[in-house]
Computed example of a mutant assay.
Amino acid sequence: MIAFENSGYMFFILFLIPAWFIFYINLKKIKKAYSSLENTKKIIKKAKIRTLFFSAAWIFMILGLACPLWGSKPVSVRRRGVSVMFVSDISKSMSLQDIKPSRIAVQRQFLKVLLEKMHTTSHEPAVGLVLTKGEGVLSVPLSFEKNAVSSAIDALSPLILSASGTNLEAGVLRALDSFGENRGNSKIIVLCTDGGETSGSLLNAAEKIKKTDAVLIIAGFGTLEDIKIRVLDEKGNTQFREARLEEEFLQKAANIAGGESMYIPALSSGAIESILKIIDTGVEGLEKMVYIQEPVKRNFEMLLLSFIFLCLGGISFYGKNK
């Protein structure tokens, strides 16, 4: 997934539209003025090529200023604080609208607000994102680049993964593995879910978390009303499954994880503040070297391509007409 550090610059690419319109008007004038010359077609062709080169140079210059981010590289940094992995349940039941506009839409807003508030503190945590549906998929590795995580949150949807069913265990364990052996002082997993499962067991994941120094925070989305949805089980058979918020189950999982782990309804008053309080506790630890996967900035490559196309346009401009 490609993100941009300064996405506002992308607007300036639209300046090419009036530039191309002016070029089209001038091209018609050139055709009319030089219609009697034998090399008119060569002049027109050279003008089009020059405009194409300069347009490409402009586009890549804007992309360079916007600073695209893709790929990742390991970076060692000395940090004080916590590492937070968001685990997003994007299964079919999260599209239900028992909370408006839908569970997945409320989850997106919840994570965006939490992310923003986390990065207003003096100790910015490293944040990553795991998607869980039929399996656990690492969407964004732990990073101090907030924009990459924010863009991934904006795209959360049950349509992202083709797998069917829900496996919360796979998502939580994928997040736990993502911390790595050298991860810093405090490891926190924030699981956003309604508690429904078709495979795996969140309770098993909670047992494994209990044996580590990680904290499991479960934010519940949905209501306690009886709702049924049609799902496929592990064998591909159609079943009707309860889709109400499984509060008792999620509370049990948090209790098994132990320590500071907790369950909290996402729509309850002070839910985000309670999570932030646990995250802030992690900054009290000693500073140490941690290793993260940092998105690679590709602005140099974009600016280099812009310079190359600018040079090509210049060569075309100053070329001799025979």
Rank of each mutant, 00 (worst) to 15 (best):
K100Q: 15
G128A: 04
T281S: 13
F54S: 02
T166K: 03
L129M: 09
G282W: 00
E135M: 10
L310R: 02
K277T: 13
L304M: 11
K42E: 09
L37N: 15
I99Q: 02
L161P: 01
N204Q: 11
V82G: 07
P141C: 06
G282C: 03
E294K: 05
A56R: 06
A47Q: 13
K252Y: 09
L191H: 00
L114H: 09
P18G: 10
E260R: 06
R241N: 07
I279E: 02
K133A: 04
K228L: 14
K48A: 12
S102D: 04
A219Q: 07
G259H: 03
L111T: 04
L245N: 01
N39H: 14
S274K: 14
E181Y: 12
G258D: 07
G270L: 12
K31A: 11
K117H: 15
K252T: 11
E247W: 08
E225Y: 08
K228M: 14
I13S: 06
A253Y: 01
V290D: 00
I218N: 03
G195H: 04
I43D: 10
K235I: 12
V290Y: 00
Q239G: 06
F144S: 06
A219Y: 03
P74V: 08
S269A: 15
R78T: 11
T223C: 11
I62A: 06
E38N: 14
L142P: 00
A105Y: 04
P141H: 03
S150C: 08
S274V: 11
G220V: 02
S7L: 08
V82I: 12
R230H: 09
A66H: 03
S164M: 10
